[in-house]
Write a protein that binds this DNA or RNA. Structure first.
Lengths: 243, 243
DNA sequence: AGGACGCTGTACGGAAACGGACGGACGACA
DNA sequence: TGTCGTCCGTCCGTTTCCGTACAGCGTCCT
């Protein structure tokens, strides 16, 4: 593939030979906001490595309520099911912030994993981080206030898209956090009042990251640290080849 | 190992030759209530496959609040980190209901995985189910009432220990669900009133499973189904060997 | 028997967030 | 320039669960 210039941290951590092999028949796609990626029962033919796009993984309950349960940006890939040999995806996922992703065919992805090189270890550890994050959020949603979770969400999103400004409506954020739109409006108003963020009709800007981080719960740091650890943990440690 | 008679569903799904190899130097251990298994930063030397024991995985927040974020019984193993090549465990885990587990050394476990037989596929898919469950609980904790979550928890625990009766105090259940002890007492009183369960000083009995299931949220069925699917998905589908 | 401890029941005020609704403001588009 | 749809601010009564406290009751120990 000629036009991949880096951007996905998982891909960028690969030795170039391995990356070239994996990306031979890959292509870059532009995802638009709200574009669906996964639906329950589906089995997509591609594995996506976001570059600038942001993907939300949500659970849709019987009564129609929808909660975000995971988020994947340039630090990961989607769906993990293809790396775990699970035969059907049971979640819903869609593009939350428009941008580019690298699409790799399932066959190529699996073949590359079978090489047991860097990719295998990275993918495995990245799944570990995904699990860690999900578990953290299980506790977070029970223990931390909406205000804390709201700040955490904004920071996590910022990190993944790599921009301090991104499109976001109160309505959407409310859905992600599983709360009322009006509650988000209140909190967002406070955060704006305090100078941490700025709102303008569907566009947020993080104006004071440190201030926002103060208001976020510890889960932000925990999840960030874990992803960092997992992505930078060198090849030395992945003893998955021959023992 | 002479004395493993079956009981862990993961181990029991293995071809006997593979199981024998994995369990050559394994031993059965009895875990007592509250016995710690994992602590943040630790790296246990064994992988445990519960038979009758039940293991809780919890997150401990800075303020000391503790929430259960995962649970492992005879359908799984702990810690998943050893299967994912993650170098340090970041969670706390302990025995919640006393019972037996099969302990396998890390080296033997990794070597067995390297064989790329059934174990590898089962472990991978089981991690998929763990992730699915965690994600489900992220949404559950936001969306569903305490009453629903309480019923769900009791059923999930019942399934994993394989008994309708097990030791449990309101206090402990409150910690697991991340709520007040008094709230649990209220809900438990209702459920008892309705004939779904029975309480006697630290011992619960599920007297009417169907009734309890009615009162549980959909997450119970979702998680149960997913584990079932993943454990019974035949070898035919795990194309992880040579492609 | 007497006490200590652990477990359960209950009560009260308060905080957080809900459900639902209404109105205003901004921007796009005809 | 007017209109319409989207997005944001606010309000009110209600529910759920919290924090805290206290009292009763079983079990075990001495």
């Amino acid at each position: 593939m000629p036009d991949y210039q880096g951007g996905n941290r998982l891909l960028d951590a690969l030795p170039s030979s391995e990356r070239d092999a994996l990306l031979r028949d890959a292509r870059i796609e532009h995802l638009v906001r709200r574009q669906p990626l996964l639906a329950p029962g589906s089995l997509p033919g591609d594995v996506s490595f976001p570059i600038s796009a942001l993907v939300s993984i949500v659970v849709v309950f019987e009564n129609g309520e929808t909660n975000e349960v995971g988020v994947v940006g340039r630090e990961g890939f989607v769906p993990v099911e293809h790396a775990l040999g699970v035969q059907a995806v049971q979640r819903t996922a869609f593009c939350q912030v428009a941008g580019e992703t690298v699409h790799v065919g399932v066959a190529a992805f699996r073949a590359a994993i079978e090489q047991r090189g860097e990719l295998f270890g990275l993918v495995q550890r990245s799944i570990g981080a995904r699990l860690f994050a999900a578990e953290q959020l299980v506790g977070c949603n029970i223990t931390h206030s909406l205000r804390e979770r709201c700040a955490r969400w904004l920071l996590m999103t910022r990190d993944r898209v790599g921009e301090n400004e991104f499109p976001l409506t109160h309505d959407f954020l409310a859905m992600m956090l599983g709360v009322r739109r009006a509650s988000v409006t209140e909190i967002a108003g406070e955060l704006q009042e305090e100078g941490a963020i700025k709102y303008q009709r569907g566009l947020v800007t993080i104006t004071d990251e440190a201030k926002l981080a103060q208001r976020a719960c510890e889960c932000y740091a925990a999840i960030t640290t874990e992803f960092e650890r997992v992505l930078t943990e060198g090849r030395r440690n992945t003893n998955h080849g021959r023992s």
